[in-house]
Structures are given as structure tokens and as C-alpha cells.
Design a protein around this nucleic acid. Structure first.
Lengths: 226, 226
DNA sequence: CTTGCGTATTAGGCAAACCGAAAAAATGTC
DNA sequence: GACATTTTTTCGGTTTGCCTAATACGCAAG
């Protein structure tokens, strides 16, 4: 399997995971290639039994394709943990390097690396590492949905370089408990308080890229204060 | 630069290092491809200024080609150290995995990995790691050249899977001081004694794949005993 | 129910890297 | 020095993965 084809599978997998439409166009944009190239490759992957594709219609992974995509995500995230924890890469930089390393990684290497890292449950942006965790699904509740008074735990952020650079500047940390303090009008910043009483202002846009769990609604009184 | 072209450069570099003839045929055999493909690629590499190639004649690396090949060898060997020391790969298995990883490694990753490993001077088979060591050249005196009574230090062995499997069975170690005890006639085994008085029989063929330094000639008397 | 627009596919081509067959050059042998 | 052998190159030809331009489809709005 060429690195190339692997990337198609991973892209389809990720579009599905993010509840986005799996269309020729979306795939082409994610991979930065033309639409005809996507059609062509989908035909090849269909012939290999990794993808189901009915022309002008639905695209999905077969069981075999899904397994392979999951394995690729696993390798990707294991490398991310290595780069962040052992080589002290900045959070924003682990993704690009892992995107390349994942294709140079056979199962044995992935397993050894996983052992070496102590079977981490999540990658540096909080995504689960398939196989290392009982739960298999990431939260898809964003910080932006909280109303003042609500508290929640920051579980995961999206894996995008520009966002991550911004996120690192915010000095927030995964697994940190956040309480929504205020929501400015006109798509203004979103203000949260961390456990140690610091307040942080987050752009509305960015809050939509941060996923939380264990949401506890605030009291009505607190909500009134807004 | 494609992984492909990188492999051509590395192959030429290694042929030169091993004092073998740098010919179309040798390159083709090392890379397991046909002779016409080699001619074609040499033309491409020449156009890129990495190789000098006069038809039906000499093949050599330019300064730029040499630098790139050295860098590749550096990445290769850094990965070998990582796989052997951190992931506990068998000596015979590090080579194949590194051959793939080296192409997925940019300079930043190589540097970080090198830091993480503490700037090792040599790879698991004893080859120097360019940049980490003052000396830049490996010994090319083989164990097979010793006569009974001579002592020497095992510095390096060739990086070949089958040989390394055999070498691991021998239970010899790099940097170990060896004393030649006996050389059986008719290309028979070569017998050496280690520091802790163990004797080990090595096939003549294999002794030619093991390189030593600090050779101290034995006394005439000892040589007579043979 | 037709027109228009966005999306998907087909058609035809290009570049990289490989191949086998055949020609050309170099090398070894008598 | 001529012939045979080996090595290298040249000459088509294949596959993979990409492209642009043109065509086909599907849906939504009038």
C-alpha cells in the first residue's frame, strides 16, 4: 500500500469522524489535489476492496479500509506522543512530522514505540489512541456551547497548526477544568476561568475547535448575571 | 528529493566507502533494479548536480551529492541507535527499519533525536555517526587478517541481516578485545579468545566482515606454535 | 418541468521511475 | 588485432498518480 493511498483512507476516516460530508470535493481539498484524481483513486481503492463508491453518490470505507485507516491514526498519534514527550516538540509541530513518519512505520515498530511510551491513552491534542483506551470515541461538544456558569473539562483540541500555535499562547492545558465566565456579544471573546482562578479570553472561533467533557450546568442565578 | 534518489546517492556513497567499484552494475544490484534504470537515474542526478557521470566511464558524487549522502547515513545510524537502545530491536533488525525511517526524517527531527540519544558516536554495528565523532573514518582492517597471537579490538561489523543474525549467535561484543588463537587450514574456522578467556570459532567468511583496530602483533614464539 | 449551477466523471495527457530487447562501447582472450 | 563476452546505453513501452478541459449528472428554484 502506497503512502498515497494510505492518505486517502485516513482522509475519509477523518471526514467521517468529524461528521463532515464525505464528498469528492472535500477529499480533494483535504489532500490538495484535483477532483478527477480523487475519482480515479476511489476507483482503485474500490477495486482493492477498501472503499465503497457508487458514482455520483456515496463514498465510505469498507471494514478493511476502516481497519487500515484506524491503524494509520494509531501510528500517527503514537508518533505525536513521542515527539511531544520525548523530543520536546511544540504541540503545533507534532502533526506535520507524524504525517510523514506514520507511513514509515510497520506494526512492529508501532508496538515497540507504544510500549516505550507506556501505552498513552491520548495524543498531545487529546485524541484517543486506538487500542490503548477502552473508550473509542472523542467528545464532540465544543467549548463554544457552554453558557456562563457552566463548567467542563478540556479534553481535546483540533489538530491544526495555526490553531495550535494560538492555543499554546493561551496557556491552557488539556484535562484542565474550565468555568465559563462571560460571553461577549457580537461573536466577541469567550471568557473562562481556570482552576487556579486565572481568566482567559478565547476567540469564539477558537472555542469551536476545543472539545470538552463532563459539562456541569451553572445555577440559574449565575446565568442571570450575564 | 524523492526517497528514491536518496537511495541512489547513499548506494554510491557506500560503494565508495567499502572501496568497491562504483559501476552501473553494482548500483543496480544493490538497489535491485535494472541497469537501464540506473543509467536513466544517473542522468537525472547529474542534471541536478549531485553526481558526475561520464558515459561508459566514471561515476562519482559531487560535493553536494556527498553532503546529502552523508546526511542520509547520519539519519540512518541515529535511527539504528534509537531502535537498538530504546526499543530493544535485535541488532539484525535495525537496518531495514532505519532504511525506511531515514527518508521520513528532516534535519530538525534528526537533531532532536540525536540530542535525545546523547550524541552517540557509533551505531549498533560500530559505524561512526557523522557529526558526532572527531574521527570520520572506520577501520577497514578485518579480523581475518590477524595471525595467531595478534590481539585487536572489534570495532565494527558489516550491516547485513544474515551476517548479523550469525554474529548475534556468536555472543561477541563490539569494543571487546580479541586475541587470535588459531587459524584452521583449508579456510577453516578462525578461533579467537575474548578477554574473559572464552574461545569462539568464527567462519573465515564472517571474519572478513568484522573490522578491528589497535592491532598488537603477537610474539614470534606464539606464532610458531601455530 | 425546465433551466442553471455546482459537483462528479470521462477523456486525453504529462512526468517519474521502472522494465526488456537491442545496439554500442569497453574489456578480456587468443 | 580480431573476436567473444561483459557492461552500458538507447529505444520503445508500462504503471502510477497527477493534471486540465470537456461532458454528464443531480438538485433546487423558478
Amino acid at each position: 500500500m502506497s503512502p498515497n493511498k494510505e492518505n486517502y483512507l485516513k482522509t475519509i476516516f477523518e471526514l467521517e469522524h468529524d461528521h463532515q460530508k464525505i464528498s469528492n470535493k472535500n477529499i480533494a481539498e483535504m489532500l490538495n489535489i484535483s477532483a478527477p484524481s480523487v475519482t480515479e483513486m476511489l476507483a482503485a481503492l474500490t477495486k482493492e476492496g477498501l472503499v465503497t463508491h457508487t458514482p455520483y453518490n456515496e463514498i465510505s470505507l469498507t471494514k478493511a479500509g476502516l481497519a487500515q485507516a484506524r491503524e494509520l491514526v494509531r501510528k500517527h498519534r503514537i508518533w505525536e506522543v513521542f515527539l511531544a514527550n520525548k523530543l520536546h516538540y511544540a504541540m503545533a509541530d507534532v502533526h506535520a512530522a507524524s504525517d510523514i513518519l506514520e507511513h514509515a512505520t510497520d506494526d512492529k515498530l508501532a508496538d515497540r514505540l507504544n510500549d516505550f511510551l507506556g501505552h498513552p491513552k491520548r495524543c498531545p491534542h487529546g485524541g484517543i489512541i486506538p487500542g490503548n483506551s477502552e473508550e473509542e470515541n472523542d467528545s464532540d461538544v465544543t467549548l463554544a456551547t457552554l453558557v456562563p456558569g457552566d463548567a467542563a473539562t478540556l479534553q481535546r483540541v483540533i489538530d491544526n497548526h495555526d490553531f495550535l500555535s494560538y492555543f499554546e499562547d493561551l496557556q491552557l492545558h488539556l484535562n484542565e477544568r474550565l468555568t465559563s465566565v462571560k460571553k461577549e456579544p457580537f461573536s466577541g471573546p469567550f471568557i473562562v476561568r481556570t482552576d487556579d482562578r486565572e481568566t482567559v479570553a478565547i476567540s469564539e472561533n477558537a472555542a469551536g475547535f476545543m472539545f470538552v467533557t463532563d459539562v456541569v450546568k451553572g445555577t440559574a442565578e449565575e446565568q442571570d448575571k450575564q
